[in-house]
Design a protein around this nucleic acid. Structure first.
Lengths: 227, 227
DNA sequence: GCCATGTTTCGACGCGGAACGAAGCGATAC
DNA sequence: GTATCGCTTCGTTCCGCGTCGAAACATGGC
């Protein structure tokens, strides 16, 4: 048994205090810039850069360049699972913040080009993921049979959206939430539908969006937007 | 944010190649002496001793002194879970490795702490699901009346397994197959039974498992493990 | 009593890698 | 254009920790 087990390299990556501090910050599921992570881990930017390179190299983190910022986030939920598994062995446990925060109001809901963004957009897509209406790929979401059924209930024509030339169900990174929401043709069709049904209302001359009482009821019936 | 995350220390422990080799050996669920572990990790006894001390200190290993030997084993199935979670991250980047690699015996059939994993473990649980002996929940399986009958034929005491403090029929994610197999107390009881009946055999010093001719016949009679 | 075996403690060596300063690159702002 | 900001690359220093030799400490067999 001369070959070192494959988990050793991952353990070594997670074992360094600086990298661990970065991963703990990213454990909230949002995307952070390199500079923010350097600050969170209390090291200089060049040190942080070296660590982030290793983590990306090992596919623990994904990175998206935006202007002169580079946004890093956990590459998949498997990474969060591994951190959690290690934490179980330690005395204190990590708590996934987006799971415990149930009752926070939908602040900062807004549109992003032609689809929903902000807390509302992110919560909505996460509800859909939790209910297995969508599955998550690298750059896009896929619609499951359950998702097709839900969209049919809302009278959204999935196939029409799919046939358009623009991408179908793109993952769009939200710069305030630092999380993904649903863009593409499907995101636009969904937003259009929710406004048409008056579940959502947009104040004139503003991108801010609010949920109407009608929408409250509708989302509740579909088991969306709730913990 | 000066405090280093608690998982960092665990990660550092699992990240060292020598300690990882020891844990890999102990992953078969059996107890090994300090000398055997030194040999497995290819280091001198005094080096192994230092590592084992750290692992015991961190509650990753349990130790029992017997004469002039000291027997080490994994402290709990949580440790095996953590190793499994890290292995998933380590193999994830490869392009669907669970499809191309049938050749390696570890992928085919192995023990995962104290239950069966690999192709064998996955096939077995899927046979049981297909025959409605088990049903699948989010985190665990449930035993149906048909399943209870089958387990009784194998002289497995389901109620004894259920009454233990550890989880009963947990779904354990397999790092090579990327599918679930049967863990928990029931998984352990089933593996124990199949080894006791000599349906399965484990080569000394390896986690690889093979099906004996006796097992071939037995599985066929129970309509298990066949397509 | 003796010696052999299994394991731990102590001390010293040496390598790997984390850290930062300085400099370079690219993008945005003015 | 110039200035500034965010990030990365290069080169160097330095500390931590894994490693082994030597020796001590057990336990069991004789």
């Amino acid at each position: 048994m001369h070959a070192t087990p494959n988990f050793a390299s991952i353990g070594a990556l997670l074992g360094d205090p600086t990298r661990a501090a970065m991963l703990e910050a990213l454990y909230d599921g949002r995307a952070w810039t390199a500079g923010e992570l350097a600050q969170a881990a209390n090291v200089t930017p060049q040190t942080a850069s070296a660590h982030l390179q290793k983590l990306v190299q090992a596919n623990l983190l994904a990175v998206a360049a935006q202007g002169r910022h580079r946004y890093f986030r956990l590459a998949s939920s498997d990474v969060a699972d591994a951190l959690e598994a290690l934490s179980i062995l330690a005395t204190r446990r990590l708590v996934r913040p987006w799971l415990r925060s149930g009752a926070e109001p939908l602040h900062h809901a807004r549109t992003c080009y032609d689809h929903l963004a902000g807390t509302l957009g992110v919560s909505l897509v996460e509800s859909l993921l939790r209910q297995r209406c969508l599955t998550e790929g690298d750059d896009a979401y896929s619609v499951t049979p359950a998702g097709r059924a839900l969209l049919r209930r809302l009278d959204i024509d999935v196939e029409a959206a799919r046939s358009r030339r623009r991408s179908f169900a793109r993952k769009c990174l939200d710069w305030s939430e630092r999380r993904y929401h649903l863009g593409g043709a499907l995101g636009a069709a969904l937003a259009e539908c929710l406004f048409a049904r008056k579940w959502l209302r947009q104040a004139a001359g503003s991108r801010a969006v609010s949920v109407t009482p009608l929408g409250e009821r509708g989302f509740r019936e579909l088991n969306l937007l709730q913990e």
